Simulated scan of single mutants.
Amino acid sequence: MINLRKKQPIVRSNAPIALVGGGQIGPDDLNLVMIRAETVVAADGGAAPLVESGRIPDAVIGDFDSLQSRHKDQIPPDRLFPIREQDSTDFNKALRSIDAPLVLGVGFLGGRLDHQLAVLNTLVERQDRPCVLLGEREVVFHAPPRIALSITPGDAVSLFPFRRVSGSSRGLEWPIDDLVMEPGGQIGTSNRALAEVELTADAPGMLVMVPRYALDQVTQAFLSGQTGHWPAREE
């Protein structure tokens, strides 16, 4: 459902929503997210790969500085939602404007490092908006209060703190219990699964990276309602 009222989410759904950006998109990436979501939203220039694939986005959100007229003209005007301020990225504008149990994002990883860092920062900033990003080799998400995943033993499970955060784990080669992780300090990249992995976090701020094949597991974990959720940050 599209909401036209200001200061309210632009798109609402009780099911996962696919969000497409204008970054690197692998050959199967669009299909992987679109078969898992009925509603498809584009963040600014992310409308281009959708239109070129034959799928008109249900909504386009952003400052429209990357949306070329040859693509924009194919989209009904009532699906265009410009947000002109320049204090946030198009990914941020789109994510904060979607109200759904989960957002599946593609076209936000790879390419320019500064763009990727801004995207990852938004995952933490918008801690109340569950979002899973599909990368070339992994999926990335902001750790909820708890999550359990069946990762093949020996495969990588990486944790990276964007804020000071602690937690606990089961099924990791190097447990995180009693560790305090923070930017510029202790991090948890290149850990490995030994068995089913269970993670808990005592506060928002931790990013989790697991193999790409775990996309459906991560999706189902969030949709199960068993992960818990973080409240919106005060602005």
Rank of each mutant, 00 (worst) to 15 (best):
R96P: 04
N31D: 13
N191F: 13
T122D: 09
Q127P: 02
G188H: 01
D114K: 00
F141T: 12
V124Y: 04
G228C: 05
R79P: 02
Q217T: 06
R212M: 10
W174M: 14
G26C: 08
L104S: 03
S13I: 06
R70F: 08
L67Q: 04
R233E: 11
S88V: 12
S168W: 13
Y213E: 14
A148T: 15
I2F: 00
D73Q: 13
D177E: 15
V20I: 15
I98Y: 07
H71L: 02
P9G: 07
V157R: 04
Q8M: 13
A214I: 03
P161A: 06
N191A: 13
D73Y: 06
S66E: 01
D155I: 07
E125C: 01
L199A: 05
D87S: 14
M206W: 03
I17G: 08
H115P: 01
S190L: 14
S69H: 09
H229M: 09
L50Y: 06
E52V: 05
V210L: 08
A148G: 12
Q68M: 09
P231F: 01
I10W: 00
I2M: 09
G105H: 03
Q127R: 15
V208S: 13
G228S: 05
V140T: 15
N191E: 12
D128N: 14
D44T: 05
T219D: 03
L215V: 12
G225M: 05
W230Q: 00
P231D: 04
E136I: 11
E52G: 06
M181Q: 01
I17D: 08
G105C: 05
A42S: 11
L117Q: 11
N121M: 11
K93C: 04
V20R: 08
C131I: 12
T39E: 10
L215S: 09
W230H: 01
L179H: 13
E234P: 03
S224V: 03
N121F: 04
S97Q: 04
R126I: 08
R12W: 09
I2D: 01
T122G: 02
V103Q: 03
N31E: 12
V103W: 04
R84Y: 10
V165G: 02
F91T: 03
L95S: 01
C131W: 12
L123D: 00
E173A: 15
G184T: 05
D128W: 10
N14A: 14
P76T: 06
A203M: 05
D29Y: 08
F222M: 11
S158L: 11
L113D: 07
A59L: 06
G135W: 10
R146S: 15
D58W: 02
D202K: 00
M206T: 09
G110Q: 07
F160M: 13
A48D: 09
A156W: 10
P130A: 10
D216S: 12
D44R: 09
S158D: 02
G171K: 14
A42M: 07
N191I: 14
A18H: 02
Q217A: 15
A193Q: 07
V139I: 15
